[in-house]
Design a protein around this nucleic acid. Structure first.
Lengths: 335, 335
DNA sequence: CTGAAAGCGCTTACAG
DNA sequence: CTGAAAGCGCTTACAG
């Protein structure tokens, strides 16, 4: 039970002033080596640690950054968080985590909390509901404050802030092209997130790559049952040769349909999904996927935030960075 | 750009003292209704929010709790975190997240940070490496401080602290019994975490339930290749009828082996895994699993911590709670 | 009912 | 080289 010792108590024990102790511990050149040593020795003995709350008050900052995560069960975001935490550590910042659960209401509450000055900066991925309803008022309110905001992952919402995202459009363009160069032309796309920004970008990438094909084979729905039957149609009736899935749900449904219909992957159907490595490698067959490098995204998000905090960017001008994706081949593409 | 207004500025604008403003905003009965109203009006107009750092300094607390997570990609822990965040919110506490990545070194650093008074309390699941090396000094150091610690999930390490865990032993006892009541007696167990506390408890549960059987069928290894071949042996040569897996890795390997050996699940082999719902339901076939209710565990962990902070427990006596598990049947058990 | 003062634990410009 | 003072933004016991 070493209850925390303060500067004042240390000063009294040493018979010097509080200022002297503080300076000594900060290696101020004002202090004589002899005194400095005495002070440090006693500080060590008592395991003195400056009270971070007091230091922060004095320095008018909080030493923390706030991270808003839409869905922590999604291992993409879990790994983004892991990157953020690692990078924040390097800057001696603590990461305060807020989970919006893809809920607009919750996101509003969180933004409200954030404006009270709990944190020096905010990293946020906007919730699905917010995007669907295009209700961005609370975000503009947050931006209106002096608090720096970096939007990560879900970036194409037109908000005036620094951004770091994934190259969604290009990744799907390339994945589609990949199939075509392999001689497959009946390439389909399934999506359960066609209503949110990143989904739209992925679909756009696919359409770009398919523009000289006669038919697109796109199916979308937010209802699993619906989407499943549409996918079944794509596979069984339209007999597509390859399928791109924009998200976890559509990828799983496609795998399921193939299993149920006895369609062999990758022999009869090739599959690429936009899912995380954690899951991809353990599906049967394992699913070729687009690696988004979430850890790196998290690291860069914190870098951008700190650049902003350090005044390295001009006010009114916003940084926008993109992390490139990698197509990782597992069993479902057979290459 | 509404830069933050302070009590002092508010006081000046109103021509009253800082104390009056502060009291008015706290609905102190000392203040006349008229003044109170004036103050609140202006505060609202300027969107006044008390500086949380200053409030905390005054109250000698931090308003935050620290959560140490061994592996955030494990959706069990992700969901625990989600429960913690939700419950902390109710107590107006912020959650600071630290990720140890199952590393002893990192865990030491984190504990060191934590002792500096960044947080009012700590929730920790001890890293695998720490358990393997039984290096608990940094944890004792943390406990030696006045800072309350709740150990969650990985609790049977003999550390003197409040604890909240999962009923590991009982869950496997019951799962084993379940198979036996169904007439299956050649029940095996595979584990890649036999060296850590929770793994040992699960194995113990299995052994308890199997004590009147002639043979146990236990295979363990931390090396995937090794474990896989041992599992293959269990399935192919020993022809077990059912298999319990203590962890994600062994469950996946078992599914893989069955797939490769053309063993039908659940017809030829029944499988139960200790994995999270997220993954279980999407495997092919979907895997019956033991639901640990991570969210609830997270909520209770924060409740215990706050009881401790509120002095509801006696010093020297420790709380220990257990969250019951549920066996969830999906395709792999066929019931 | 209002305000001056002390204090939470620190840092730092200033005086000696 | 050392220390007294002011101040970060708040709360609250005390005096008036």
């Amino acid at each position: 039970m070493k209850s925390k010792i303060t500067l004042k108590e240390l000063a009294k024990l040493l018979n010097v002033s509080v200022s002297t102790v503080s300076k000594a511990l900060h290696d101020s050149p004002e202090i004589s080596p002899k005194t400095a040593e005495r002070v440090k020795e006693l500080a060590k003995l008592h395991n003195y640690r400056p009270n971070p709350v007091a230091v922060n008050l004095k320095k008018s900052k909080t030493g923390t950054i706030g991270v808003v995560i839409p869905n922590i069960s999604n291992s993409f975001f879990a790994r983004v968080l892991s990157g953020m935490e690692a990078e924040a550590q390097k800057h001696d910042q603590q990461v305060i985590t807020y989970i919006s659960n893809e809920s607009l209401e919750r996101e509003k509450q969180i933004c409200d909390l954030l404006t009270s000055g709990m944190v020096d900066g905010v990293l946020i991925a906007v919730s699905e509901e917010t995007q669907k309803k295009q209700a961005y008022d609370h975000l503009y309110a947050l931006l209106d404050y002096d608090i720096p905001v970096v939007i990560y992952d879900r970036i194409n919402l037109g908000l005036p802030a620094d951004k770091i995202g994934v190259d969604d459009e290009k990744s799907f363009y390339e994945a589609t092209q990949f199939f075509r160069t392999k001689g497959l032309h009946k390439v389909g796309l399934a999506s359960a997130i066609h209503h949110v920004g990143i989904g739209q970008l992925r679909i756009k990438g696919y359409e770009q790559a398919m523009q000289d094909e006669e038919n697109l084979h796109t199916v979308t729905s937010t209802k699993p049952v619906d989407l499943k039957s549409k996918i079944r149609n794509l596979i069984v009736s339209e007999k597509i040769e390859a399928l791109l899935c924009t998200d976890f749900e559509s990828a799983i449904l496609a795998t399921r349909v193939a299993y149920e219909e006895n369609i062999k992957i990758p022999e009869d159907l090739k599959l690429i999904g936009y899912i995380s490595r954690e899951v991809a490698q353990y599906l049967t067959p394992s699913l070729s996927y687009i690696e988004q490098h979430p850890q790196e995204l998290g690291i860069k998000a914190v870098e951008i935030l700190n650049n902003r905090l350090d005044g390295k960017y001009k006010t009114g001008e916003f940084e926008e960075k993109i992390v490139s994706t990698t197509l990782v081949h597992l069993e479902s593409t057979g290459f």
